[in-house]
Amino acid sequence: MNKTLKIKIFASFMLLIALLAVAGIISIVEYRSLSKSFNMLIQDNYKSIEASKTMLEALEREDSGILLLMLGDWDAGMKIVNYADSVFLLSLKTAKNNLTETNEEIHIKNIENSYSTYKARWKRPIVDTDKQGDISWYKNDIHQLFLTAKISVNELMDLNQTSMYKEASILQEKSERAIMHGIVAIISALVFSILLNFFITKYFVYPISELANSVNNYRDGENKLRSNIKSNDEIKKLETAINDLLQRIVKNNK
């Protein structure tokens, strides 16, 4: 196929555009993936970790309320316990609506089960019963249930924390990768420019100076244009046209 200068220039720029477009698209995809990971980190794991922390706090408050009940202070004890219970259930609902990890649902179920067993104990009256002031009941029964509930909440928090650290390291890797893509794009564009410069000099500039030289040589006495243009493009056509013109002038002069 005879490639004209127009085609050569057009094809080169199309390749350059392709190079830049590919670099651009890859960067967009990488940054989208980065922001997605960031979102996951903040929204998914952090939300569940916060909910777990609130649950742990609520459990601690409930425990204080139970101690007040054991001391016979019904009003103060029930006020604290009921408030802590509502906070706990609200946080549990948040965690339940934010299932993002595998096995997270199992952990939520464990919390629900252990908490309902624990709650069933303090829901029954303690004040004015034989449990009031019974420290061994507290130690062996209710405190054990409190610890079980706490452990199950801690497990949920661990799961999300581990996943958060993992996601953070992936995020770091992704950002490094995105930077590397950028560096490769810049270097590629530079190399492409150097090559384009080489080809333009070789195939555009050099033939034109060749043609100019041969015109000069003709002027200095040669009877035909002798340029070394091997391509089959507009410059070759120009050479042929000049040659024809010169031949015609010579003919007319004769």
Partner: peptide
Amino acid sequence: TLPLLYSALLCGIFGVFPLIFVE
């Protein structure tokens, strides 16, 4: 996936480029 696709496209572009000029 992306690193391999990007590398393949770069190699393709730089491989085809000289063919435009060199007869």
